[in-house]
Structure formats: structure tokens, C-alpha cells
Design a protein around this nucleic acid. Sequence first.
DNA 1: CTATGGACCTGAATGC
DNA 2: TGCATTCAGGTCCATA
Length: 269
Amino acid sequence: MPELPEVEITRRGIAGIAGARIIGVRQGLPLRWPLGVEPQALTGRTVRSVGRRGKYLLLHLDEGLLLLHLGMSGSLRLLGNAPPPGKHEHFELHTSAGTLRLHDARRFGAVVYAPALDAPPATQLLDKLGPEPLDDVFDARSFHHALQKHRAPIKQVLLAGRAVVGVGNIYACEALFAAGIHPATPAARISAARAARLHAAIRQVLQSAIQQGGSTLRDFVSAQGEAGHFQLHAAVYGRAGQPCPRCARAIAVLRQGQRSTYYCPGCQH
DNA sequence: CTATGGACCTGAATGC
DNA sequence: TGCATTCAGGTCCATA
């Protein structure tokens, strides 16, 4: 579920865990990767701060850090008084500020310990990630330069996370619509002017989604349990056959790398 | 190096 | 009601 806006909403929702002491860890069924440390070794450590890099949440501890990824179906809750865990709740951090609980039916998500940001496995997970779309270092010129390196369709280049991170299937479709770019266009054939429009569209779409609390297609909820509602304002995603909000032509679907791409044949070239 | 298809896993929706 | 098929927010890995 989670793309950058959902992960950022989650980060803000659990930021209050900073300063809390870890009391214990409970693991359910295996997630994508093993934790990489004995759970009891975390007991007694303190959470210093909660950061984000791309779609990873970073729980910085007084010693080491936890990297959390929500995969396709994950969500995190911060619970003051936690009821017994359900069948899909596969990781829990009990702390003095409440229980941080991961719900992830498909288990594509992960919780991984690293001794430091510049040590494995953090380096393996984070080092190849592209620039943060909402940072100032992500500028139109360098984005256009990055696109020149890829002959693949722009939609798939956005999802690959090298030219920019955090853009998943929903927001790639929405940003390409906002920029008027056909999703099958080879990335390297996008002009500087159109790359600048796409750069602005990515930032605008992500920021708007954060303001809407993210998108809830099936089961995303914030750390406080609230659904997002960006999906109600999506122009193209999930709207095959419905009229384009700009030109009223029917929204079309395309299959790219086993993912559905929604776009308007009238507005995107 | 880039590009592509398969893999991981469960549940909901659809069609017969 | 049951059963098979398709699809869903991601991304790593093997193969060309």
C-alpha cells in the first residue's frame, strides 16, 4: 500500500515514540527479512527519533537503528493500551510510550536492525536510492539529467527509485497525468521542459497526498488508525473507463512490468 | 551497466 | 455453496 505519502503519514503518527524506552519485542510469522539481532538485545535501548528515507522508516536508537518497510499491505499503529495481537500482526515493539504494532497480511514488509546508518544491512537497503522528491536537492535540472540514463518507459523509471524515490504505482500514474506525459514514453526522450513539468507534478502530487492523509485502497491506516482519502481525488488511478476530469475521454489501462498503469489517452502524449 | 520476468504472500472480488 | 482465476500500495533476484 504504502508509497512515500503513506510512509510519511505513518512517520508523523509514530514520532511521539521518540524518547521511549524499549521494554520488549514480539515477532509473529517471518517477514521479508530476518530482524538481524536477538530481540532481547533491543530491550533497554531508547528510541531517539523517527526518520524516513524513501519508503523506509528509520527508528534511530541510542545504539543502532531499526529499518521498517511496509511492503504492499503493511501499516503501523502506535497503541496506548494494546489489545491482543491479531493473526496478521507480525512485529511489536513494546515501549514506555506504547506498543508499536505492524499489521502486514502479505508479509512483504520488513523490520531490520542495523548497527549504524553507514553499516550493512542499512547500506544495502538505502545506498542505491535516488533523491528525496521533497528535498531541495531534487531539482528539475538534475532530474532531467537522471532521466537521460534510462531508455525504459518513464512510468517504470519512476517506479525503479533511481531517478527519484517514494513514487509508487498510484502517484506515478497521477504525476504523469498532471504533467501530460504518456506513461510509455522512453525516459531518455523527455525534453528538459517536460522533465521540469514532471518534476513539479511529482512534488505537487506527493504533497497533496500527504495533506489528504495518503491513499487507502484496501487497508492502509495511519498510526492512529485513520484511513487516507487521496484516492477519492485521484484523476486516473483505479478509474479505467471513467471520464477524464480534464477532457472527459475514458481513462485507459496499460500493463507495464506486471503493474497496471492508468492514463488519459486524450491528455497524455 | 540496463531491462525484463518471476518470486515472495494473503485476501478480496469475480466468474463458472 | 465451492473452486479457480485475477488482481492488489513493493522490490529483490536471476537471467538476457
